[in-house]
Write a protein that binds this DNA or RNA. Sequence first.
RNA 1: GGCGGCAUAGCCAAGUGGUAAGGCAGAGGUUUGCAAAACCUCCAUUCACCAGUUCGAAUCUGGUUGCCGCCUCCA
Length: 502
Amino acid sequence: MPEPFKLYNTLTRKVEDFEPQQPGHVGLYVCGMTVYDHCHVGHARAMVVFDTFVRYLRHRSWDVTFVRNFTDVDDKIIARANQCGEPSADLAQRYIDAFGHDMTALGLLTPDQQPRVTESMDAILEMISALVADGHAYAADGSVWFSVKTFDEYGKLSGRKVDELRSADEGVPGKADPADFAVWKASKPGEPSWPSPWGPGRPGWHIECSAMAKATLGATIDIHGGGLDLVFPHHENEIAQSECGNHAPYVRYWMHNGLLNVASGQKMGKSLGNVVNIEDAVKVFPAEAIRLYYLQNHYRSPLPWDDTALSKALSMLARIYEAREAAEAMNGAGAAEDLSAANKAAADKVSKELGAAAIECLQVAREFEARFYTAMDNDFNTAQALGHVFELARAVNRLANHKKAKKRGGPIAREALAAFELLATAMGLCTASSAEFQAEVKRKRLGVLGVTVQEIEALLEQRTQARADKDWARADAIREALEAKNIVVMDSPEGVDWRIRV
RNA sequence: GGCGGCAUAGCCAAGUGGUAAGGCAGAGGUUUGCAAAACCUCCAUUCACCAGUUCGAAUCUGGUUGCCGCCUCCA
């Protein structure tokens, strides 16, 4: 049985109990990319937030249909294509492919459906026809305009008043009211176009989402997501088109993620020229560090971005991985499969024998699931849920410091590992093995630091020899040399290991 | 100018009526040949400011100030 949860609804500006149309099912439509450029870390916040949302809901037994579109016909695409001297369809396809690579590199789920404007033309024309037939839209000079004043509820999402609206295409011939917006644009020479009852043209910016949402999820969808900057005009206009065209409520819950802020306090945006592409970010940071960076804040809050953002997130991620490694080292491998009554009884017994650290660790491990769910079910509060993860990490590390933990902590560690398993399944963090994670960190960070593994290992060998000779001065000199390159040398009874200072 | 949102320690941040989670940074300690990691202790009598409601407010109400987003393409 799916578990109930609460969600902030931009339409009502309240946190509400989520009530699906069909029991157990969530239809989710997320505004994807207009494919005229690469996906940057600002876009990726929306992608990661909704990916995590879907993972979590599925983990909680919801049957989720996840739709994310591509807008592959648009003024900006045409403009960019003309600039490059490339057919706009080719340019769009190029960026769709790049987006796919970026999402794969980020480790995101593929949506159940990824409709495109160019493949949804029938649905778009059908919706425009319905609007024209009902008098909600009118044709003029080969274009079709939505008549905002025919929809009394216009402005209900964004709080706009129709009379105060000015328009993007002020003074365009044929447009009857300043607030009206295009649902179909007559094509100009050299632009891609499709035949329509009003002449050759292409869809306006907003109609494609209305039509694709209906085609994939039906007239009324459960949750519609996207960035906060899409509230007006995009989502407001979608509501107007869909509700007038379908005679049904369009969206039950509007879910908007906050934007990234650069250090100056401004948002990140292509027009501001302060963007970092995902393609570049994933070359130098593990995907999960990027994911954690987004999830450390509540999805609706603005999220500060600066040069240190990802390396801070990587430090946090490393702490979680290392705690899990500590749990594994306590003979705790085997994780969730062995949470039998026998293991629980053994854990109870061991915790009493080992004392406070063990008792606390067991308690934190056992309470983790309920706390995690409570945080996530309350408007998807990943920041609070991660707070619980760090408490778990501390409790595990504390137990691991106990001198008897390594031999006897297994039953407790297994319960802790079940909690880490939950983190991986429900939030997509800690999905790799510790070895894989360390390897990825080294692979991606060494290049940035300008150091090679060979170089490091050669120095470590010399240092091992120096230590064997008890030549501490020499050993320390080598340590310092490595330290200067941000390589941390770690001696342990098992031998020498090294990590990158993140 | 209009609409919406935000303001919690050096920094990031959770917390929507019951007495301030968590992370980073910092100080001291345990451990170590020396380190690193980890752990322990310390680090906001206080939540932008001013009134008010209440037994009780970071949390509710009104006002003030500051910041941000949207109003033009934007996740």
